[in-house]
Design a protein around this nucleic acid. Sequence first.
RNA 1: GGGUCUGUAGCUUAGUCAGGUAGAGCACCGGGCUUUUAACCCGGGGGUCGCGGGUUCGAACCCCGUCAGACCCGCCA
Length: 524
Amino acid sequence: MHWADHTAMRLTEQYGPQVIASGITPSGEFHIGHLREILTAEMIHRACLDAKIDSEYIFIVDSMDPLRRVYSFLSDEYEKYIGYPLVNIPAPNPDGSPSNEGKNYANHFLGPFLESLKEIGVYPRVVMNHKTYEDGEFAEKIDLAINNKEKIHEIIENISGRELPEDWFPYNPIGSDGSMDGVRVTGYERPYVFWTDKHGIDGRSDIRKADGKMPWRVDWAARWGIHGITCEPAGKDHGASGGSFDTGIPICKLLGSEPPGKMVYEWIQLKGSGPMSSSSGNTIGPIEALDLVPPEILRYIIARTKVKKHIDFDTGPSLFETADEYERLVSNPPSGEGLSKKKKVAKDTILGSLRLSQVNRGEDPSKSIAGVSFRHLAMLAQIKSRDQDIWDSLNNSKHIDGEPNESLVGRLSRMRNWIEGVHFPDDARIRIQGQISEENKQKLTEQQKLFLSELSSEFESCEWTENRVNELIREITMKIGIGRREGYVALYLLILGTDYGPRIASIITELSRKQIMQIFSKSL
RNA sequence: GGGUCUGUAGCUUAGUCAGGUAGAGCACCGGGCUUUUAACCCGGGGGUCGCGGGUUCGAACCCCGUCAGACCCGCCA
């Protein structure tokens, strides 16, 4: 059974209607690591719906979280905003300076991310956490937390093993300058928390408004209750023993609600360069990824991997493999009756992955495939600059019949982006040689050289079409009595510098006659 | 130091929660395809399931130990 279906099944044994949640702090550029948070939750949500269980998927944006430090992509001017809720900070300009155009920091990073979520078929109910404070929905929990301050203090110290300061308080008010840093609580009288800030100014915060927020570990536990969350997969950072999940569970109960079960997912890493982090700049954004990878493949990468396994995200060679695997599985899905228990499990898991990889829930996966492998398309895209030539070629090779489908058109345009960019794998790149290398020239037999020179003289005036070129290759190899294979090898050595390659006639005719003649004349 | 996860064919991995003689893809090798030599079809070799113990009639799977890697324990998905 697929992990999402399995989780859905477990959830229904425990709760009624489901509220599946994700939560992310918009402190910087979103990256595909965040996509795992989102998709893990969203796939469980879909699995619930598919099992005819009431379910809602919410995406909680931690817009009330304070700016912790001046990240590398921010200018020094942000120093003054440290401790401010992200929603109250101006968005950065491209040069990192704060903008005056009225957009806030949280929305600045959130907007593009929500756009890419649409592209992968994720439509959450977005909850801005500052709104929840503003609307007074936290008030009851804040009151309870303050009245149980000692108990919460104890829970956090016991479970996390870290020591909290003597004057720790489960509510951080915003001071007179807008920052939550250095604000000392001096008293509480519902609904007001009284404080003195770092400038020595006194004030009060209304717990029914966004005048402050609870610290992370308490905030998280409280919101589980407020939104009735039944499942919120957490990154392994929160999942560590003594981490915020472990303290959240008893705190949530203390605040009068039933916590969700613990579920922890592994991180996505960039192949070879470790974990992703918005602040270190080691990221691939969802937009960048969607520029190269079709959305269903991106979903498939997450869907096929067990939640507790880390994913090496790689835009290089393994992307071919994953994409072709997807293509193959969709066009030839596992089937069969009377399988052994294990085979049946494997079959159901794969079918689940394919089902959950669809951009539109419930859509037939066969609509999402292009009918041609990534590898083949990569080859065609490199040797043919006109899309129509590619469709013709694919018709010819019987990959498609007639016009390309929407999926294929999208694949080709992404493929072209990929080829032009830095992520395209070297060994898939076709490089036209200016002339044959000395080393490769040594490899040619006398007959192969004869073949090339005869071909060269025919090329001077022949019809410049794939068919004609192919015919010539056939005719000349026959004429001088060498195997066709040998003829092809000679051409590959000459034009690509390797002894194998894609259909050479396409490459030859894609290049101009002049270019080809130059290679020949320089090499022979 | 404390903790979590991972370790199965050259590579990516399924199977571990409910124990019943290791399954797939890629790559590789061989064959076929008389316009596809990065296409397509067929076939093949390849694994002491990290290591050592234990429980069991039987262990990749359960238990104990051990090694290696990744990560968490201020913030981070």
